[in-house]
């Protein structure tokens, strides 16, 4: 095995290090990894710890009271006699806005994930099984939009869907409509379209990789044993590509729950999500501890849902089977 063990300076320390590395080669591996681990510690672990700590404090005016309290979490779930309804579901909370925004964000992210998979899967399938020439060109064409500014992609939907946007003025100049369609922008549907567009290119890649890995002889075997194309897809291709598809789903779902650029730019009042509430608590409303508590509740809920989902579908077994 090649070794990158740093040639430590001469002297006692150097020889101690060399002996330790000879006994445990992985020490050198961790030595290489240490700058990243330090970065993670400073920029991820410590800040998240601080956020958790902050969620147990309270804000009074511009000062922060550092006495330990669960008041922020209570504020998020405190029950109330008066029940607020959202989409027919009762939210019997004193401050129902946070629970409702969280539920709404989860629903929006879920719908977005479903549409992204429905659109991305055929494209990944096409790339993996149909495209034979210029595969790299296709892959690059698919990848470019993901790497270009998220902000700009959202902005481009704003000018597409707006009251005086491309669709409305385009249809008008074609004589198809007289008045601009007002339902295009500033609602949850605009948020969904923008989110699906933002993520669909990204979701193709993990699905494509898992399709590409499928042993082609398995497909031939299925055909030889009498499966038609649909049966073969259902019984061989789809199960074998499930790990990549599920990874894609999670890579879309989790960040989407916390998105706030899209709802800010194209959501309007009816399209706000929990990310807007967090941003506002850290900004205008200036209640950092409550914002911290809301952020943590959001992460906990998402983590729990994801774990539950993976457990329900038996993800471990699936991965073990398909390699």
């Amino acid at each position: 095995m090649a070794s990158y063990a740093p040639a430590a300076g001469s002297g006692a320390a150097g020889s101690v290090w060399r002996r330790a590395v000879n006994a445990r080669p992985w020490l050198a591996g961790y030595a290489l990894l240490s700058p990243i681990l330090v970065l993670m510690l400073i920029m991820m672990v410590a800040p998240i710890a601080a956020l958790i700590l902050m969620s147990f404090w309270t804000q009074s005016g511009f000062e922060i009271d550092t006495g330990f309290t669960l008041a922020n979490y209570w504020k998020l779930i405190a029950p109330s006699e008066a029940t607020t309804y959202w989409m027919g579901v009762p939210f019997p909370f004193e401050n129902p806005v946070y629970a409702i925004l969280l539920a709404k964000s989860l629903v929006i992210a879920l719908v977005c994930t479903v549409f992204v998979l429905l659109l991305a899967y055929p494209m990944a399938y096409y790339l993996a099984f149909r495209v034979t020439r210029r595969k790299m060109l296709w892959l690059i064409l698919i990848t470019i939009p993901f790497w270009t500014s998220y902000l700009l992609r959202v902005f481009s939907w704003k000018i597409t869907l707006g009251f005086n946007g491309a669709i409305n003025t385009g249809l008008k100049s074609l004589g198809l409509i007289d008045e601009p369609l007002e339902f295009l922008l500033y609602n949850p549907i605009a948020v969904e379209i923008t989110l699906v567009h933002a993520w669909v290119a990204f979701a193709i890649l993990p699905i494509y990789v898992s399709l590409e890995k499928i042993d082609r002889s398995l497909l031939e075997a299925a055909t030889d044993l009498g499966d038609g194309p649909w049966m073969r897809f259902w019984r061989v291709t789809l199960p074998l590509s499930a790990p990549g598809t599920i990874s894609a789903a999670l890579l879309v779902f989790i960040p989407t729950v916390g998105d706030y650029v899209t709802p800010t730019l194209v959501g309007g009042p009816s399209g706000t999500m929990v990310g807007n509430a967090i941003q506002s608590l850290f900004g205008k409303q200036n209640d950092l501890p409550l914002g911290a508590a809301l952020s943590i509740v959001m992460m906990l809920v998402v983590t729990l849902l994801v774990c539950l989902f993976l457990w329900l579908i038996g993800f471990r077994r699936m991965r073990a089977k398909t390699g």
């Binding site: 992985w26 961790y30 681990l37 920029m43 601080a50 956020l51 989790i254 998105d259």
Partner: peptide, 28 residues
């Protein structure tokens, strides 16, 4: 190049910023 003990969790946490919403890191 190395067989690292605890590889799964360590690399899993390094990849976390790919998944966790940026707003969480922003406020934290």
């Amino acid at each position: 190049r190395y067989r690292l003990p605890g590889r799964g969790p360590v690399f899993g946490s390094i990849m976390l910023p790919l998944v966790v919403p940026s707003i969480i890191f922003g406020v934290a």
